[in-house]
Design a protein around this nucleic acid. Structure first.
Length: 264
DNA sequence: TACAATGTTTTAAG
DNA sequence: CCTTAAAACATTGT
């Protein structure tokens, strides 16, 4: 489900739990969400502690815990976070549940492509501290962006934009949106781009990230019909710019939607 | 029934 | 060692 804007939306769904003590933790320790982790250590580290703050980095989330604990969550394809006052919750895909006095913080993920991590320490763990610049960071300059593309000359543009080391938080729909705005075909190779293409791509990467965050916001707002977003999901459809039919194909292993009339 | 789904990770090949 | 491509992962919905 989630790309950077939706991930930030889900992060905020746990905000009712900030400042509250965790009184009980339940996990599904057999699921692949806990690969490489010790669910028992995680439960021990969380029970009795208080949620202090949260932040996102691309599709990654970090919850800081009062007693030097760090809880990392990735939502994968079908993950979601929610807060509930209900006494009974649907347990089927609730692979992590933190109960407080006020309610329960739930991480649901039917497909189990997500991930839960936990670490203790004064400083954030390496898997958080070593993440690359985000596309809206002030350090994410055009020179930095260009240097990233240097080593990816042979890549098609669609799979390029899905590389999280280069474009943290960009996912399938955002990549399509960016290429549509930049008027570049998704199967074009990086080596075919000139300086002005680089400039346009850099600009649209940041534009889509910035406005996706604004539109999804605190209450999952709807995208305007002037975006590709509203036209890309089901077959058929019309390009809002050219009014010509949209195309779909698998590029880089992912379903891709583009407007052949304007994306060259 | 068979395939596709807003994502990584591993493996293979060049 | 590096880059690129493809398969694998687990489950649901069409």
């Amino acid at each position: 489900m989630p790309e950077l804007a939706e991930v930030d939306y889900f992060r905020k769904q746990w905000s009712p739990g900030l400042g509250q003590k965790v009184v009980q933790v339940t996990t599904h320790p057999w699921t692949r969400l806990y690969r490489g982790e010790s669910p028992l250590e995680l439960v021990k580290g969380l029970v009795g502690a208080t949620l202090a703050s949260s932040e996102t980095h691309g599709k990654q989330m970090l919850f800081r815990i009062s007693n030097h604990g760090w809880l990392g969550i990735h939502l994968g394809m079908t993950g979601e976070l929610l807060f509930t006052n209900e006494t009974s919750i649907d347990d089927r895909y609730a692979h992590l549940v933190l109960k407080t006095e006020e309610g329960a913080l739930v991480f649901n993920d039917p497909r189990q492509f997500g991930r839960v991590r936990f670490a203790l320490g004064i400083d954030p763990p390496d898997w958080w501290a070593e993440l690359p610049f985000q596309v809206l960071d002030h350090q994410y300059t055009f020179a930095y962006f260009s240097s990233l593309l240097e080593r990816r000359k042979g890549s098609q543009l669609k799979p390029l934009l899905l590389m999280q080391d280069l474009f943290p938080g960009i996912g399938n729909w955002m990549a399509d949106e960016i290429l549509w705005r930049a008027r570049l075909a998704p199967d074009r190779r990086v080596k075919s781009l000139n300086e002005s293409h680089h400039r346009i791509l850099f600009k649209e990467v940041r534009y889509v990230a910035k406005h996706a965050l604004r539109i999804v916001g605190d209450d999952w707002g709807d995208f305007p019909d002037s975006w590709l977003f509203n036209h890309r999901w089901k077959g058929g459809g019309t390009c809002p710019k050219s009014k010509q039919p949209l195309s779909r194909d698998t590029i880089g292993g992912r379903t891709t939607c583009w407007s052949p009339a304007i994306q060259l």
